[in-house]
Design a protein around this nucleic acid. Sequence first.
DNA 1: TCATTTCCTGACCGTATGGTCAAGGTGAAG
DNA 2: CTTCACCTTGACCATACGGTCAGGAAATGA
Lengths: 215, 215
Amino acid sequence: MSGDAQISRLKPGRRTDIRRENERAILEAAEKVFAEAGFGGATMQLIADMAGLPKANLHYYFATKEDLYRRVVQQIFEIWLDAASSFDNAPGPVEGIGAYIDAKMDISRTHPHGSKVWASEVMHGAPVIQDYLETTLRDWTNGRIAVIQRWIDEGKMQPVNPRHLLYMLWATTQHYADFGHQIQTLNGGAALTEKQWKEAKASVKDMVLRGIGAI
Amino acid sequence: MSGDAQISRLKPGRRTDIRRENERAILEAAEKVFAEAGFGGATMQLIADMAGLPKANLHYYFATKEDLYRRVVQQIFEIWLDAASSFDNAPGPVEGIGAYIDAKMDISRTHPHGSKVWASEVMHGAPVIQDYLETTLRDWTNGRIAVIQRWIDEGKMQPVNPRHLLYMLWATTQHYADFGHQIQTLNGGAALTEKQWKEAKASVKDMVLRGIGAI
DNA sequence: TCATTTCCTGACCGTATGGTCAAGGTGAAG
DNA sequence: CTTCACCTTGACCATACGGTCAGGAAATGA
């Protein structure tokens, strides 16, 4: 566990704001702790400390550790679903997949903790979000596969397997969040600079779009 | 935690074999439990049960939980390093990178647990294998980057960024192990068949090799 | 001001976990 | 057979964890 400072908290203000602000601070702290320690390694005490609240106060807002964890996982999933909109209404793979890569790379940079929590959850057999995988994710996947297949039929890209293309997109973009520590170590210990992130995005887009024969 | 049966154990035999066989059974059980529950979620009791030994016996062979965990992580790392030999002595990217993808995809299929443990370790900031990242992995990476750059200079592939190509290779191949549960769910709940694995390998190789302009 | 709801928190509890230990079992060597 | 090093294990311990609770503080509305 890194010794990062605690999550910033705004002044309480009105009654409604107290709840919203505390839940936000707790979720932000929880996302970080769950990402860095895993579900089993995370402790409510650690999350409380990082959120700047007594542990008992966490249980006032979130009944159990599982409840809190579930909320964190749902959060990143919804962010990813939003990013997927860049996929639709695109005339072809260069725009659609290009925008999707951009969006997912941006999320890997801005929400690395959430990505790790999701990865950890799936690696452990998705005990709390299995239903999401079987419903929302499956439907979303089938929808995008249809879009990709249409692009293939229209001759806008090579006839690659759409499903494995999606896996490659997920794997490659999320790798920059999930394995960010490894990437940073191989970068001499320094986090990627703005310029390096641009280079990463450009490299991924270039290789993927050429790989599917879209450029 | 899935309710899988315990790890098989052979008869002890001679004195030397007792140690070897027990350590093997413990490591095999540990790899599975660490992968499915994470370091924090894994318990020595669970590993002991799966290995078919009393918990106290685990501490006879491995002093602490960390010791056991470290051995498991080292194991998968060495397997990956071995697979990297397919990279060398290749005349060009089609053979070298193609063989590397094949090898890593095979490992994702045969050692999914180890891959997950590694991913989990890196995601948590590599607390126990940081030195490997800074020495062995960095050297290995720089070596392969040089090989890729040579291929580029020889006109055998497009001038892509070698580093990001390696990240794409790692991400994509390991995704089939680390996110195997998600892939299985999207496959209707069934594990990939022999035929589907071949399709996966072919798809990955096809997209990557075309993506770097090697085919 | 007063009543009511919401929020806060120190102290506490039962449980589970990593690890220890001492006593006993077992194979190999002479 | 005897010896001895190696292996096995039930019982035990200190700690840490998730969760509870009662009583008090603070905000809201009349």
